[in-house]
Amino acid sequence: MTGKRLLFRQLFDNISCTYTYLLGDILAKEAVLIDPVLEHAERDARIIKELNLNLKYAMNTHMHADHVTGTGQLKKILPNCKSLISKESGAKADVYVTSGDVIKFGNHQLEVVATPGHTNGCVTYIWRDQEMAFTGDTLLIRGCGRTDFQEGDPTTLYHSIHKNIFSLPDHYLLYPAHDYKGVMCTSVGEEKLYNPRLTKSLDEFVDIMKNLNLPYPKMIDKAVPANKVCGVFD
Protein backbone atom coordinates (compact mmCIF):
# COMPACT_ATOMS: atom_id res chain seq x y z
CA MET A 1 0.00 0.00 0.00
CA THR A 2 1.41 3.38 -0.99
CA GLY A 3 0.07 6.88 -1.29
CA LYS A 4 1.37 10.43 -1.44
CA ARG A 5 2.87 10.12 2.02
CA LEU A 6 2.03 6.60 3.18
CA LEU A 7 3.97 3.37 2.93
CA PHE A 8 2.62 0.13 4.38
CA ARG A 9 4.20 -3.33 4.14
CA GLN A 10 3.09 -6.56 5.77
CA LEU A 11 5.99 -8.99 6.15
CA PHE A 12 5.89 -12.61 7.32
CA ASP A 13 7.91 -15.22 9.19
CA ASN A 14 6.79 -18.71 8.17
CA ILE A 15 8.29 -20.42 11.24
CA SER A 16 6.41 -18.54 13.96
CA CYS A 17 3.69 -17.27 11.58
CA THR A 18 4.47 -13.75 12.75
CA TYR A 19 3.46 -10.65 10.83
CA THR A 20 5.82 -7.68 10.90
CA TYR A 21 4.53 -4.30 9.78
CA LEU A 22 6.54 -1.50 8.18
CA LEU A 23 4.82 1.88 8.28
CA GLY A 24 6.41 4.91 6.70
CA ASP A 25 6.01 8.53 5.68
CA ILE A 26 7.46 8.64 2.16
CA LEU A 27 8.05 12.38 2.05
CA ALA A 28 9.51 12.68 5.55
CA LYS A 29 11.52 9.45 5.01
CA GLU A 30 10.63 8.23 8.50
CA ALA A 31 9.29 4.80 9.46
CA VAL A 32 8.44 2.42 12.30
CA LEU A 33 8.53 -1.37 12.32
CA ILE A 34 6.07 -3.36 14.45
CA ASP A 35 6.89 -6.85 15.82
CA PRO A 36 10.14 -7.65 13.97
CA VAL A 37 11.57 -11.18 14.10
CA LEU A 38 15.28 -11.70 14.80
CA GLU A 39 15.87 -14.05 11.85
CA HIS A 40 14.50 -11.42 9.45
CA ALA A 41 16.30 -8.34 10.78
CA GLU A 42 18.61 -8.26 7.76
CA ARG A 43 15.66 -8.58 5.39
CA ASP A 44 13.77 -5.80 7.10
CA ALA A 45 16.81 -3.51 7.23
CA ARG A 46 17.46 -4.10 3.53
CA ILE A 47 13.89 -3.12 2.61
CA ILE A 48 14.10 0.00 4.77
CA LYS A 49 17.38 1.03 3.13
CA GLU A 50 16.09 0.30 -0.38
CA LEU A 51 13.06 2.49 0.27
CA ASN A 52 15.36 5.26 1.53
CA LEU A 53 13.65 5.38 4.92
CA ASN A 54 15.04 6.15 8.35
CA LEU A 55 13.75 3.69 10.94
CA LYS A 56 12.72 5.69 13.99
CA TYR A 57 11.42 2.82 16.13
CA ALA A 58 11.64 -0.97 16.09
CA MET A 59 8.71 -1.75 18.36
CA ASN A 60 6.70 -4.60 19.79
CA THR A 61 3.08 -5.05 20.74
CA HIS A 62 4.19 -7.09 23.78
CA MET A 63 6.98 -9.33 25.05
CA HIS A 64 6.63 -12.30 22.73
CA ALA A 65 6.98 -15.94 23.78
CA ASP A 66 7.05 -17.62 20.36
CA HIS A 67 9.93 -15.81 18.69
CA VAL A 68 12.89 -13.60 19.54
CA THR A 69 12.33 -9.96 18.65
CA GLY A 70 14.48 -8.35 15.99
CA THR A 71 14.57 -4.97 17.71
CA GLY A 72 18.04 -5.35 19.20
CA GLN A 73 19.60 -6.57 15.96
CA LEU A 74 17.94 -3.80 13.96
CA LYS A 75 19.48 -1.26 16.33
CA LYS A 76 22.91 -2.66 15.43
CA ILE A 77 22.24 -2.50 11.69
CA LEU A 78 20.43 0.85 11.74
CA PRO A 79 22.16 2.89 14.48
CA ASN A 80 19.59 5.72 14.59
CA CYS A 81 16.80 3.27 15.41
CA LYS A 82 15.42 3.01 18.95
CA SER A 83 13.62 0.07 20.51
CA LEU A 84 10.12 0.67 21.91
CA ILE A 85 7.73 -1.39 24.03
CA SER A 86 5.08 -0.81 26.69
CA LYS A 87 6.32 0.03 30.17
CA GLU A 88 4.09 -2.69 31.62
CA SER A 89 5.85 -5.39 29.58
CA GLY A 90 8.84 -5.51 31.91
CA ALA A 91 11.18 -5.71 28.91
CA LYS A 92 14.23 -3.58 28.22
CA ALA A 93 13.89 -0.85 25.58
CA ASP A 94 15.06 2.66 24.73
CA VAL A 95 11.52 4.05 24.78
CA TYR A 96 8.64 2.97 26.99
CA VAL A 97 5.02 3.80 26.22
CA THR A 98 1.80 3.62 28.19
CA SER A 99 -1.85 3.82 27.22
CA GLY A 100 -2.71 7.18 25.70
CA ASP A 101 0.77 7.89 24.37
CA VAL A 102 1.27 8.84 20.72
CA ILE A 103 4.08 7.50 18.53
CA LYS A 104 4.96 9.91 15.73
CA PHE A 105 6.74 9.16 12.45
CA GLY A 106 6.75 11.92 9.87
CA ASN A 107 3.23 13.30 9.60
CA HIS A 108 1.68 10.07 10.87
CA GLN A 109 1.04 8.87 14.38
CA LEU A 110 -0.04 5.74 16.25
CA GLU A 111 -2.12 5.87 19.40
CA VAL A 112 -1.10 3.44 22.15
CA VAL A 113 -3.97 1.63 23.88
CA ALA A 114 -3.37 -0.89 26.66
CA THR A 115 -5.01 -4.24 25.89
CA PRO A 116 -3.73 -6.64 28.58
CA GLY A 117 -4.91 -10.19 29.11
CA HIS A 118 -2.57 -12.22 26.93
CA THR A 119 0.27 -10.55 28.84
CA ASN A 120 0.23 -7.55 31.19
CA GLY A 121 2.18 -5.49 28.68
CA CYS A 122 0.06 -6.01 25.57
CA VAL A 123 -0.86 -2.87 23.67
CA THR A 124 -2.76 -2.15 20.48
CA TYR A 125 -1.44 0.53 18.13
CA ILE A 126 -4.26 2.48 16.46
CA TRP A 127 -3.59 4.35 13.22
CA ARG A 128 -6.70 6.50 13.12
CA ASP A 129 -5.84 8.40 9.93
CA GLN A 130 -5.71 5.09 8.06
CA GLU A 131 -8.59 3.51 10.03
CA MET A 132 -6.61 0.47 11.11
CA ALA A 133 -5.12 -1.05 14.25
CA PHE A 134 -2.31 -3.46 15.07
CA THR A 135 -3.59 -5.81 17.76
CA GLY A 136 -0.58 -8.02 18.49
CA ASP A 137 -1.64 -11.28 20.13
CA THR A 138 -4.58 -9.69 21.92
CA LEU A 139 -7.01 -10.19 19.04
CA LEU A 140 -6.24 -12.63 16.25
CA ILE A 141 -8.30 -13.34 13.13
CA ARG A 142 -11.24 -15.40 14.45
CA GLY A 143 -9.29 -15.99 17.63
CA CYS A 144 -7.27 -14.38 20.41
CA GLY A 145 -4.05 -14.84 22.34
CA ARG A 146 -3.85 -17.67 24.85
CA THR A 147 -4.06 -16.85 28.55
CA ASP A 148 -2.35 -19.79 30.25
CA PHE A 149 1.14 -18.28 30.70
CA GLN A 150 2.93 -14.90 31.05
CA GLU A 151 0.37 -13.20 33.34
CA GLY A 152 -2.47 -14.31 31.08
CA ASP A 153 -6.00 -13.73 32.36
CA PRO A 154 -9.12 -14.49 30.26
CA THR A 155 -11.39 -12.02 32.05
CA THR A 156 -8.91 -9.20 31.52
CA LEU A 157 -8.46 -10.17 27.86
CA TYR A 158 -12.21 -10.25 27.22
CA HIS A 159 -12.70 -6.78 28.66
CA SER A 160 -9.65 -5.39 26.84
CA ILE A 161 -10.99 -6.50 23.47
CA HIS A 162 -14.58 -5.44 24.00
CA LYS A 163 -13.69 -2.08 25.54
CA ASN A 164 -10.71 -0.99 23.47
CA ILE A 165 -10.90 -2.84 20.13
CA PHE A 166 -14.57 -3.67 19.52
CA SER A 167 -15.38 -0.05 20.41
CA LEU A 168 -13.60 1.09 17.22
CA PRO A 169 -15.75 1.67 14.12
CA ASP A 170 -16.76 -1.58 12.40
CA HIS A 171 -14.89 -0.74 9.19
CA TYR A 172 -11.49 -0.37 10.89
CA LEU A 173 -9.05 -2.98 9.59
CA LEU A 174 -7.25 -5.09 12.19
CA TYR A 175 -3.77 -6.50 11.69
CA PRO A 176 -2.67 -9.14 14.23
CA ALA A 177 0.82 -10.32 15.15
CA HIS A 178 0.09 -13.83 13.85
CA ASP A 179 -2.12 -15.89 11.59
CA TYR A 180 -1.83 -19.63 11.08
CA LYS A 181 -4.26 -20.04 8.16
CA GLY A 182 -2.93 -17.56 5.61
CA VAL A 183 -5.39 -14.73 6.32
CA MET A 184 -3.75 -11.31 6.35
CA CYS A 185 -6.22 -9.00 8.07
CA THR A 186 -9.74 -8.68 9.39
CA SER A 187 -12.07 -5.90 10.55
CA VAL A 188 -13.76 -4.88 13.77
CA GLY A 189 -17.18 -5.69 12.32
CA GLU A 190 -16.11 -9.16 11.15
CA GLU A 191 -14.69 -10.13 14.51
CA LYS A 192 -17.74 -8.86 16.39
CA LEU A 193 -19.88 -11.12 14.21
CA TYR A 194 -17.74 -14.19 13.56
CA ASN A 195 -15.05 -14.58 16.23
CA PRO A 196 -16.00 -17.95 17.77
CA ARG A 197 -14.65 -17.03 21.20
CA LEU A 198 -15.44 -13.35 21.57
CA THR A 199 -19.05 -13.55 20.44
CA LYS A 200 -19.70 -15.55 23.61
CA SER A 201 -20.58 -14.25 27.06
CA LEU A 202 -17.76 -13.56 29.51
CA ASP A 203 -18.43 -16.77 31.44
CA GLU A 204 -18.44 -18.84 28.25
CA PHE A 205 -15.25 -17.17 27.06
CA VAL A 206 -13.45 -17.85 30.35
CA ASP A 207 -14.51 -21.51 30.19
CA ILE A 208 -13.24 -21.81 26.59
CA MET A 209 -9.89 -20.23 27.43
CA LYS A 210 -9.38 -22.42 30.51
CA ASN A 211 -9.95 -25.58 28.49
CA LEU A 212 -7.91 -25.04 25.32
CA ASN A 213 -5.35 -27.67 26.40
CA LEU A 214 -2.66 -26.17 24.18
CA PRO A 215 0.91 -27.54 24.17
CA TYR A 216 3.67 -25.68 26.00
CA PRO A 217 5.07 -22.99 23.66
CA LYS A 218 8.17 -24.41 21.98
CA MET A 219 10.15 -21.16 21.99
CA ILE A 220 9.07 -19.65 25.31
CA ASP A 221 12.11 -20.67 27.36
CA LYS A 222 14.41 -19.03 24.81
CA ALA A 223 12.22 -16.17 23.61
CA VAL A 224 11.08 -14.62 26.88
CA PRO A 225 14.56 -14.21 28.44
CA ALA A 226 15.90 -12.84 25.14
CA ASN A 227 12.99 -10.47 24.69
CA LYS A 228 13.40 -9.08 28.19
CA VAL A 229 16.67 -7.61 26.94
CA CYS A 230 15.47 -6.39 23.53
CA GLY A 231 16.31 -9.65 21.77
CA VAL A 232 20.09 -9.36 22.00
CA PHE A 233 22.21 -10.30 25.01
CA ASP A 234 25.09 -7.98 25.82
Results as ranks from 00 to 15, higher is better:
G100E: 06
Y194Q: 04
H108K: 12
L51Y: 08
F166R: 01
S89Q: 13
D221A: 11
T186C: 04
S86Y: 08
E190D: 11
E42T: 07
T71I: 08
D35V: 12
P196G: 02
L168M: 03
D153H: 12
T147E: 03
G90E: 08
V188F: 00
L198S: 03
D101H: 08
P36C: 08
K210N: 15
G90Q: 13
L110P: 10
H162G: 02
W127F: 15
E131H: 12
G189C: 05
I141H: 04
L6M: 06
L6G: 00
R46G: 09
I47N: 08
I85Q: 08
T147V: 14
L84W: 05
G24P: 05
D221V: 11
Y96V: 12
T124V: 06
A226N: 13
L55G: 09
E30D: 15
S167C: 05
L23N: 01
T119F: 10
R46W: 04
K4D: 14
D35I: 11
Q130L: 12
L78Y: 04
Y216K: 10
G152M: 07
N164H: 02
I15L: 09
R142E: 14
L173A: 14
K76L: 10
G143T: 03
V123L: 11
V123W: 07
E88C: 09
H67F: 15
H162K: 07
V188Q: 01
A28M: 14
T71G: 09
N14P: 12
S86M: 13
G136M: 06
S167F: 03
S83T: 15
K228M: 15
Y158W: 09
G90C: 13
G182N: 07
Q109R: 10
L173R: 10
L53G: 01
L22H: 03
N195C: 01
T199P: 02
G117S: 00
K56T: 14
L173G: 07
L110Y: 13
R128Y: 06
T138R: 01
I220Y: 02
P196A: 04
R128L: 03
S201Q: 08
A28G: 02
N52I: 10
D94P: 11
P196D: 09
A93E: 12
D179I: 00
T124Y: 04
M59Q: 11
H67Y: 15
G143D: 03
I141M: 00
P215F: 01
S167Y: 03
V97E: 08
T199Q: 04
L168Q: 08
N107V: 14
Q130F: 02
D129F: 05
N14D: 15
V206W: 02
L157F: 09
E204L: 09
E190I: 06
G106N: 04
H162F: 00
S187R: 02
L202V: 00
D207P: 02
Y96I: 08
E50G: 00
